[in-house]
Amino acid sequence: MLKAMEDEGFGSCSNYRECESVCPKEINVSAITTMNRLLYRSR
């Protein structure tokens, strides 16, 4: 998931739902939370 995120050129989404409300791909906040969790574990 992280590789796909980097390949598509997006990231740094918060868990505050602002990203979800304007996301052109309609990615929901639970997916954003999962991406953030994976990102922090990979560092």
Rank of each mutant, 00 (worst) to 15 (best):
M1H: 10
L2P: 04
L2D: 03
K3V: 14
A4F: 12
E6Y: 07
E6I: 13
E6A: 09
D7W: 00
D7L: 14
D7N: 09
E8F: 02
E8L: 06
E8C: 01
G9E: 02
F10L: 06
F10E: 05
F10A: 07
G11A: 07
G11F: 00
S12C: 13
S12K: 06
C13W: 01
C13S: 01
S14T: 14
S14M: 10
N15P: 00
R17C: 11
E18H: 11
E18F: 13
E20Q: 12
E20C: 08
E20N: 03
S21V: 05
C23N: 05
P24C: 11
K25S: 12
K25I: 03
E26G: 14
I27R: 07
I27L: 11
N28M: 10
V29K: 01
S30W: 08
S30R: 05
S30A: 06
S30L: 12
A31Y: 05
I32A: 00
T34P: 00
T34A: 12
T34S: 03
T34F: 04
T34C: 01
T34E: 14
M35Y: 03
N36W: 04
L38A: 03
L38G: 02
L39F: 11
Y40W: 12
Y40A: 12
S42L: 06
S42H: 08
R43K: 13
R43H: 06
